[in-house]
Design a protein around this nucleic acid. Structure first.
Lengths: 133, 133
DNA sequence: CTGCATCCAGAGCGATACTG
DNA sequence: CAGTATCGCTCTGGATGCAG
């Protein structure tokens, strides 16, 4: 997890964000890990069982899905409901907090979609320039 | 870097985001790393020299700042200008693409700021519940 | 001042096997 | 079906030292 000094930003980041960059980073550490966003996106469709989720995401290990879900549950973004049946059944569902996270994440996703070509081109150019040394 | 299967999402993530979750993840891998967002935020104030940037951020190693800046430069988010003086001077500055990234990142930052208390409380509750086993 | 190279500890994560 | 435990690899990232 991140832990930053309280570096006071004088300017003010486009005049909007308070100088609590540590907070932003902390949340980004949660959101930025390998599977969190995928899980949140998948759960947007509604409650889902463990293996359904696993199949949807595709190439996630059972271990990592469990860990990611535990983390999200701990942060209050996902709720976990156990049905004491046999075989056991566990449903995962976004909490209101988790659903509210979708708004900024979707915004980021739209930025990603809109600018992916530009980024790929920039990368190609950069790599090409680095080859003729 | 992430590399996901092309898992087609039928539902559609709140009906907004296309089923290109891979793209989102790829960008998140860039944005989600430890220093990227901090650097972008700092550069929001305007062009900055290497050490000025380093001092602003505070507890970043020289190595990681260099690596982060190279990555951002490669992705076309930051431009690097060398002044062939002595001692050498290098200015880093957000490109238009980099500046456009601020919008969604600031949105995420505002979400973080608004919901940090809720998340911390959720964590406390979760940890407390786990203690009385 | 800037920025590479090296070394090294630790985190992240996948594969596998096992339990209720 | 859901979850835990263990192993081992890779990658991150911090510290240090050297060079233009």
């Amino acid at each position: 997890m991140l832990e930053l000094e309280h570096t006071d930003v004088p300017g003010g980041v486009a005049g909007e964000l308070p100088n609590r960059c540590g907070d932003v980073s902390q949340v980004l550490a949660r959101v930025g890990d390998k599977w969190t966003v995928l899980v949140v996106m998948m759960l947007a469709a509604g409650p889902m069982r463990f293996n359904a989720l696993k199949r949807r995401i595709g190439k996630v290990s059972q271990r990592m899905l469990t860990l990611t879900l535990r983390g999200l549950e701990r942060d209050g973004l996902v709720s976990r409901t156990v049905f004491p049946t046999v075989p056991p059944r566990v449903d995962y569902e976004l909490t209101p907090l988790g659903r509210s996270l979708q708004t900024p994440v979707v915004a980021l996703g739209e930025w990603a979609f809109a600018n992916l070509d530009a980024m790929n081109e920039a990368r190609r150019d950069y790599d090409a320039r680095r080859e003729d040394l």
